[in-house]
């Protein structure tokens, strides 16, 4: 029998980030976090909470209490599929899906997400593609994502890719938006140069 697993679990107040809940609450839709009464409806209605290391309810509790590390490193925020069930069911009107978005953004800013975890990579690829062409290309983005996170998996995906190609449901080139592409880029650049807007 292996040795008894002993882990110390106590939280000193100084280990918490008092500023964290404020940063989250500053994001649109996340301001109502404090209203939470910890009823757990969000976790119960969430289609994927059974896979989460922290249920949505605990994410809210811990965010509010300043458990920044634990929250940003949890798989919960990346498993959120944006189905908005929690937002619709929350008895206190908390936009939990928006809270998850806010946490995703903070996790990316803080580079706190697990390496090779596909969701943030997918998000980044998507982001770049749209900036370049004004449109996304699911096939290409997915391919790059798989390459960056788990190249072996690409082999497994070849049959699906071929099938989609044959059915005309995937193209190797990106359809670009027509007309004023410059305008879109200017718009995005403007957001970059006007950080005060963010």
């Amino acid at each position: 029998m292996p040795g008894l697993q002993i882990q110390r679990r106590v939280k000193y107040q100084e280990e918490l980030d008092a500023d964290f809940p404020r940063r989250v609450a500053d994001m649109p839709g996340a301001a109502d976090l404090n209203r939470c009464i910890q009823c757990g409806t969000c976790s119960a209605t969430c289609p994927v909470s059974s896979f989460m290391d922290l249920t949505p309810r605990r994410v809210v509790a811990m965010t509010r209490a300043g458990f920044k590390e634990e929250v940003l490193r949890s798989n919960t925020i990346w498993l959120c599929a944006s189905c908005y069930s929690c937002t619709v069911e929350c008895p206190k009107g908390i936009k939990i899906t928006d809270v998850m978005y806010a946490l995703k953004r903070l996790a990316i800013q803080e580079r706190a997400y697990p390496r090779h975890f596909p969701t943030p990579v997918l998000a980044r690829e998507f982001f770049h593609k749209v900036r370049q062409t004004g449109r996304s290309n699911e096939g290409q983005i997915a391919t790059v994502m798989i390459l960056k996170t788990n190249p072996l998996k690409l082999l497994r995906q070849i049959p699906l890719g071929l099938k989609l190609l044959v059915k005309g449901r995937m193209s190797l080139w990106t359809e670009k938006m027509s007309g004023n592409k410059r305008q879109l880029q200017d718009l995005l650049d403007y957001m970059d140069t006007h950080k005060e807007l963010r």
């Binding site: 994001m27 649109p28 944006s82 978005y101 806010a102 995703k104 953004r105 990316i108 969701t119 943030p120 997918l122 998000a123 980044r124 998507f126 982001f127 749209v130 004004g134 449109r135 996304s136 938006m177 027509s178 007309g179 004023n180 305008q183 879109l184 718009l187 995005l188 957001m191 807007l197 963010r198």
Partner: peptide, 26 residues
């Protein structure tokens, strides 16, 4: 709609929400 661009979808929200809104707003 002529000259439309990507709406930003859910992925964009996770990186930069204001840019995501700008994409849709255009």
């Amino acid at each position: 709609l002529p000259e439309w661009n990507c709406c930003g979808a859910t992925a964009y929200m996770g990186i930069d929400e204001k840019k995501a809104f700008v994409l849709a707003a255009r």
